[in-house]
Amino acid sequence: MAFRRTYVRPMDGWWRRDPFFLRYMAREATSIFVVVYAMILLAGVIRLSQGEAAFGEWLEGVSSPWSVAFHAFLLAVFAYHTWSWFRIMPKTMPPVAVGGRRLAGSTITALGIAAAAVASVAFYLMVRVLA
C-alpha cells in the first residue's frame, strides 16, 4: 500500500458547531436539574419524618422568594426536558401500528406531550384539593 498521510480534525468544542448539538447538550443538562429537584423533595420527606416542626421549617424554606424564583426557573427547565425527550421518543421505540398504519413520529411526540400536560394539570388539581 502506498504511503498515506491523512489529516484528523480535532473534536474540541464539537457541541458548539451545530445548533442541533447545543439543543442536545441542553436536553442532557436538564437531567441534572431533575436530580436536584428530586433531592429537594427527598429532603422534604426526611424532614416530614422528623415531625411537624421540622417539616414546617422545610416548607418555610421552599416558600422563600428565592426558592419561588428557583421553582419558576425549574418549571421552565422541566418543560424543556419534557418537550425534548418526547421529541426524541419516536426514535427510541419500535414502530407502532394503529389499524395497519404506522404511527407518525410527530403523533407519538404530540401524544407524549399531551399525556405530560394532562398528568401535570391533574397533579396540580389534586394538590389544590388536598391542600
Partner: peptide, 24 residues
C-alpha cells in the same frame, strides 16, 4: 441518542431508531 444521524439521512433510514431498538 443525539439523533442528528436521522436528521441528515438523505434516504429517511432513521438509523437512530435502529440503534435504539437494539438497545432494548
Amino acid at each position: 441518542a443525539v439523533g442528528y444521524c436521522s436528521e441528515v439521512c438523505p434516504k429517511q433510514v432513521d438509523p437512530a431508531n435502529a440503534v435504539n431498538q437494539n438497545k432494548t
